[in-house]
Design a protein around this nucleic acid. Structure first.
Lengths: 301, 301
DNA sequence: GTCTTAATTCCGGAAACGAGATCTTTTCAT
DNA sequence: ATGAAAAGATCTCGTTTCCGGAATTAAGAC
């Protein structure tokens, strides 16, 4: 039995889907299938019942879920316990608006329980700015979106800054264009029937990805809004298309189901300086890794 | 972090030696070294202090030891919990005298705690007889010594019986010739200055290994005794050399340190029929595997 | 100082793993 | 009802990891 298999199991159990889970843990679906099958063979029982395309936990799966969570928590605790000195002091974390909304709450809760002595300073901002702040030691680390290759090529200074930092993927977001209800489904930016794109600040990587995608076929203006709530509201007016990751959209339980178009997966990176890491950072790093692809609602079992 | 690394860590912690631990978990020393180093790198602390050739736990190692034990126990519990039906009924286990004395107590204690509904029938006997009893369904499984290749060749019926059964190594014993105190150290059987070899019944594999070793150079008679205590007492008289695994000798805290000569490692196998396994057997099998190379004294932490 | 034993390092073969392509089945839309 | 899309399973292939054995180094015993 392997702890990474258990992590995968938790993701599948939480998403009830191999594909989703695969994205959540940053692997390919076939791999997830195999690991689950290995786990089932190892335990000698089937953990999921495959009725149709839904993966639902069997009764044995349910009981195993409890142990799996305890196992992961215990492993994390072990990790922390051997750390010679308990981290304390301040940790300055930069994060994108979207990550703060969808991914961080679970991780921050656990972190606070584990290390009450660390006071965490959260700063919201765009990836571009956050990266600079980490470099100049205004922040200790930041969660940013990995810019696609084409974008890094046309902004070489950003690229150079990133290269000077350590980075590690922690989440994968499904970046969406959110369309007004009633808008016909689209294949490319040319099919857009709206007057503008609604996004956050200029330094926001998601915004720039969307702009790059849009400018291939049309010349839409971008209207800048301050929050994802504002963006959704703007979409509801019917004349704008919004940009946001699926995890954020899922959070908002919007009254009417909206049309979406996928711009593809975008990794969220934890970036930090190679040297000069406060001990609280290591603790934060570990909690983040453990939270990876795990659902809070299940972790409380 | 990998559960097999933790098993290895437990073995090293318990033996304070990578060579011993390697034997205990059925691996090669270099491998144990590597896994421990990986674990240390993964955790970011050193678990052992290598002062000279002794491996002693550091303070961090001590705290990790506690977690490691809990982790293994929890994993075992998880395994058992998903088993659809709790095993019950009777399980007839055959074992060698030596295994019953040195290795089984820990495993049986844990087994009884986990499965109070199973009544365990222990039968003591020689490997040869135990094997037959498993084949003829007098026993459900047995712990026997793996006969070395030369022995299997000269007793083809034993070999055939073994081939008809499933087998799995669970322990490794260091088989010893125990010499009277004051006896000069020996290189081969020719150096023996005693009148006889003291061992158990004729079907005992350890006895036959020793006899094979002895007859290469001298023609010693074998005196048959009923227990390891009797053998040691006989050795104390000064005119016999005893045969027993090191684990048994260690148990007996004999007043004077005795001279020993190694006959080499002998594996202890769990043998069972390919089909027709009671559910209690699977539970027993798992508990044995988990106990593998683990020290009871440490497991109570 | 030499000999022995234990731990580590190095290296080659084997097994496991992960990614992508393909196949099968279910589901949803027309 | 039929076709298209999507999700899970299966297969293959390239890569990585892992294990075991040989060589190396270091510590203790005589």
């Amino acid at each position: 039995m392997d702890l990474s298999s258990i992590e995968i199991f938790l993701a599948v159990a939480s998403d009830r889907s191999v594909t989703k889970a695969a994205k959540a843990v940053g692997r390919v679906p076939s791999n997830v299938t195999t690991r689950i099958q290995q786990l089932e063979e190892d335990l000698g029982v089937s953990l999921f019942s495959r009725d149709g395309k839904k993966m639902t936990l069997t009764r044995e799966g349910e009981t195993f879920l409890g142990y799996a969570n305890r196992l992961m928590t215990l492993a994390l605790e072990a990790r922390q316990a051997v750390r010679p000195l308990a981290p304390s002091g301040t940790l300055r974390v930069g994060t994108m608006e979207s990550t703060a909304a969808s991914r961080l709450p679970a991780a921050l809760t656990q972190f606070n329980q584990m290390w009450p002595d660390v006071s965490l300073h959260l700063t919201m901002g765009a990836s571009r700015d956050l990266t600079r702040d980490v470099l100049s030691d205004v922040l200790d680390c930041a969660l940013i979106a990995r810019p696609p290759k084409t974008m890094r090529e046309e902004d070489s200074s950003f690229d150079a800054e990133l290269k000077a930092l350590e980075m590690e993927p922690v989440f994968v977001e499904d970046l969406l264009i959110v369309l007004p209800s009633g808008h016909p489904s689209i294949k490319s930016a040319a099919d857009l029937r709206v007057g503008s794109l609604a996004a956050l600040e200029p330094g926001c990587t998601y915004r720039r990805i969307a702009e790059n995608w849009a400018r291939k076929s049309s010349a839409l203006p971008t209207s800048e809004l301050g929050s994802y709530h504002a963006i959704l509201a703007s979409v509801a007016t019917g004349n704008t298309a919004g940009v946001m990751p699926r995890s954020v959209l899922d959070l908002m339980h919007w009254p009417t189901p909206v049309q979406t178009h996928q711009l593809g997966p975008v990794e969220t990176l934890l970036v930090y300086r190679r040297t000069d890491r406060p001990s609280a950072f290591n603790a934060f790093h570990e909690v983040l890794s453990a939270t990876k692809g795990r659902d809070v609602r299940l972790a409380t079992n």
